[in-house]
Amino acid sequence: MRKTWILALFLLAACSNTHITSSWRNDRVPAVHYSKVMVLAMVPDNQRNIRQAMEHSMVEQLRRNGYEAVSAFQEFGPKAFEGMTEQASVAKAKSDGADGLLTISQTDHRRTRQYVPGTIYPSPWGWGWGWGGGYYSPGYVRSANCFAWETNFYDVTSDKVLYSVQSNSFDPSSANDLADSYSKEIVRDMKEKRVLIKLSKKDLADR
């Protein structure tokens, strides 16, 4: 019983608060190793901390997977892409020497009220409240932040969308927590769909 209780707590702690709802890869565009990927988060200006965190975390995840990546905020400042369409953003990224552009668009942000039902937790020591030992946590209503995202990856050379993904992030504890879970989930899916491929050192040297 004690092992089950500890495992349940571990699984809850390990869960990501970002979940992909749908994703698509353009099979007409072949997988290549991009030499420079620009990351551009399109979020309201009053949430600049989220933009910076999202771009920074995604850049770090891409670099860990062998890709040179840069933040649009760091390269151009906070206002350079303001009011631009994604196609204009692709052209600007190309002028900066990028051959890949990853855009992160916040499509919705709302606060919701959610009822969390009560739970009986078995006691790891075999004694406590209720039948057979355990503890009861009563149900309650809580407010939560919900973010909806759409992310597109452009092959800048061909000016085509290579990948598109929609996802939801539920009640992150901070901007950094949001960015960390989001970037890990998106990069995982991009690798799975072979949007991002890892080349050997020899392959990279031959390019």
Rank of each mutant, 00 (worst) to 15 (best):
S173Q: 11
F153I: 01
L178E: 12
I186N: 03
G139I: 00
V165K: 04
R111C: 01
A175L: 06
V187F: 08
W125I: 14
Y136I: 04
W149M: 08
N176A: 11
E150V: 09
Y182E: 08
S137W: 00
N168R: 15
R142Y: 06
L162T: 11
W127D: 05
V165E: 05
Y182M: 07
N152H: 15
D171F: 06
R110D: 00
G133P: 11
S167R: 03
S169H: 02
F153A: 05
I120A: 06
D180W: 02
Y115K: 11
G133I: 04
W125L: 07
D171G: 01
R142S: 09
W129A: 09
V187M: 09
Y163K: 04
G128D: 04
T112G: 01
H109Y: 12
Y136G: 00
P172W: 14
P124R: 02
D155P: 10
F170R: 00
L162E: 13
T112Q: 15
G126H: 07
Y135L: 02
G126S: 04
S183H: 07
R113G: 03
D155F: 01
W149T: 00
W127I: 07
K184W: 04
S183Q: 05
G134T: 07
S123G: 08
N176G: 06
T119D: 01
C146W: 07
T151I: 15
F147L: 10
Y182D: 13
T119A: 06
Y121R: 05
V161M: 13
Y135D: 03
S137R: 15
Y140Q: 09
R113L: 10
T157A: 13
V165N: 08
S181H: 12
A175M: 08
E150C: 09
A144V: 11
G132F: 07
S137I: 12
Y163D: 10
P122L: 05
G139Y: 04
N168I: 10
E185S: 15
Y135C: 02
S169G: 03
Y154R: 05
Y154I: 03
K184C: 01
R110S: 14
W125E: 15
T151N: 12
W149H: 07
L178Q: 02
S164M: 14
G128E: 02
W129S: 04
N145E: 08
S173D: 12
S137L: 12
I120H: 11
G126A: 11
N145Q: 15
T157S: 15
K184E: 14
F147W: 09
S143C: 13
S173G: 06
S174H: 14
P122Q: 01
D180Y: 00
S173F: 12
W125T: 14
L162N: 07
V161E: 10
F147A: 02
S173R: 10
V156C: 09
G132M: 01
N168C: 09
R113E: 08
R110G: 02
S173C: 01
S169E: 04
V187N: 00
A175W: 02
Y182Q: 09
G132E: 08
T157C: 09
Q114R: 13
